[in-house]
Structure formats: C-alpha cells, structure tokens
Design a protein around this nucleic acid. Structure first.
Lengths: 150, 150
DNA sequence: GTTGGTGCAAATGATTTGCAAAAGG
DNA sequence: CCTTTTGCAAATCATTTGCACCAAC
C-alpha cells in the first residue's frame, strides 16, 4: 500500500510489534504516530479523526483493535478520567498521575514517584504487580472545598 | 401511593434526604433498600431489575437519577472496575479497595487503611481532599505474573 | 399550588462484533 | 498461501435527555 523507507522513531516500535508476532500495517503505524504526536491524552474517536486527515478510510474499530494490541504490549496506557470514556497515552510519555476534582473537573498533574511507596507495598504484601503508570484520583480541589456543596 | 408506617433502618436515610431538600418517594426508598440489601457492588441496570420485582414500573433513568442524588450526598459510591460501567455501593459498607488483575480479572479486596498515608500526603502537599473510599487498582496478580503474556 | 420526581421513548456515544475482502510475512 | 487485519455496517449497552404527567410537601 505504501513503501517503507527508513523511519526514525517508528522503527523500534515496528520491531517490537514484529517480535510480538503482530503484523506491521500502515494503519497501525499511522495510529501510533498520531498518538505519539498528540503528546498526551487521546480518545479513540479523536485518534481516528486525526488519522483520517491522512488516510480517510480508517475505522474506529481498527483504532480500538490497535490500541488493544498496544495496551497488551504495555506501549500505551488507558485511563478513565471520569468522562465515561477512556483516554489513551503513549506509555513512554512522562509518567504521571492526576488529581481530578469531582466538582470543577479541574485536573492537577502529579509526580510519578508519589505512588512508589504504595506500589512497593502491594508488591511485597500481596505479590501483586500494580499498574500505577497513569492513575486518576478523584476528590475535591482546594478551591472547591471552600465552597461547600449541597 | 403507599402508606408509610415506621421503617427501621430506612428512617435515618429518609431524614437525610428530607434535610437535604429532596423528596421522599417510594421509588427512592425501594432503590435504597435494594442497594443496601445487595450488600455489595451493583450496577444501575441490575438495581433496576431488582426493584422491578417489587414494583415493575421503575425505569433505569430513575435509578440513575436517584444514584446521582445519593452520590452527591455521599451515601453511595461509584467505582469503575474496568468493565466499562460503574458499580455502586452503599457507602456505609465496610470501606475497602480492590486489586484487579488485568489478565484474569480476579479481584482481591484490600483493607481500607492502606491508602491512608497517600490520602494524608495529597491533603498536606496539594490541599486536595481525595475521595479514596472505594478504589480500583489494576495490575497483574501473583498467578498471572508467572505465566508471561505475549 | 409549586416544585421536584417519574415513566416513557428516543437520542447519544463509546465500544464490540460478524463478515467478506485485502494485505502482510 | 495462510493468517492476520481491515472497513463497513449493524448490534450492544450504559447512560442521558426532553417531555408530559403525577406526586410530595
């Protein structure tokens, strides 16, 4: 469909796909590239939109299926930010968490290391390997605490 | 529609509703009772089913609207356990969290106090009041870690 | 009475699935 | 070739919303 010449940073990902026994398709590369280029949170429908600007035939289902593969390979993360859908992110993006205010919906970024202690405890006490790479914690921000809700 | 005589444990909740300026309707009481009686996680559609066994006309929308009120009053909690929907629980149930295995979907209950340290840190460092009453942590359980995934 | 609550039906919107055709290795 | 992947269309399924009617207070 297209001819591949060398391709800087996509190369390593392509290799990972191949090694994992998955096929390397233009669609997957485009989805991958869109996700990386976004440099942050993306929903599946919005990703599809982006890719369609280059290749108008991708279906959302393909995006979902691709994200599923990448998720299993731990290359992307999926997070429920409370909006009823999932936001996906390239896993290599600076690892961080979020404080989400239930009242004003404001989001505060959180340093990655903050949950290290918890992770270690879950590992040692429960033998559980937590996936704390992109976490959403809900609650009330400083401002909204002041104005008490009904 | 019905006549209210005294009603053991529902009384206090009824009073709370009234104090919060909400009306006390049979539907709400039935939903409330179903949620309490379930004694654990319930989705909105399943709650509606339960109530329909007693009063066949409740609509899911009413259940959602009621849960919304109760959620705002902090009487019930809503949690995304990764199944794409929300599970609701009577907030007075023993507070606990969950370790959910991404591979086998197994769920391990977690003691409430485990996140106290984190909560305190978020409060002092960020002025954020986290709602850590019913938390879902994803990852791999001991068993599934042994069998490496593709 | 007023106001809020309910049932119904219909819309929304994300996500999934079956299937035949196309492409990767 | 053989298997995986894709596009398309249709189906699910949870959740929301508009609206006319009814019930609590």
């Amino acid at each position: 469909m297209y001819t591949w010449t060398t391709m800087s940073c996509e190369d390593e990902t392509a290799e990972m796909l191949r090694r994992a026994g998955h096929k390397l398709t233009p669609q997957r590369l485009m989805i991958l590239r869109a996700l990386r280029h976004a440099g942050g949170h993306m929903t599946a429908p919005r990703l599809a939109e982006q890719v369609r600007e280059v290749y108008p035939f991708v279906d959302v289902s393909t995006v979902y299926r691709t994200l599923d593969v990448l998720k299993r390979m731990r290359l992307v993360t999926a997070t429920d930010m409370g909006s009823g859908d999932y936001v996906f992110e390239w896993a290599a993006e600076g690892q961080h968490h979020h404080l989400i205010c239930s009242s004003c919906s404001g989001v505060t970024d959180l340093d990655h290391g903050l949950l290290d202690g918890l992770a270690e405890r879950l590992r040692s006490e429960f033998g559980f390997a937590p996936d704390l790479h992109h976490f959403a914690i809900f609650g009330l921000c400083r401002v909204c605490q002041a104005s008490a809700l009904p």
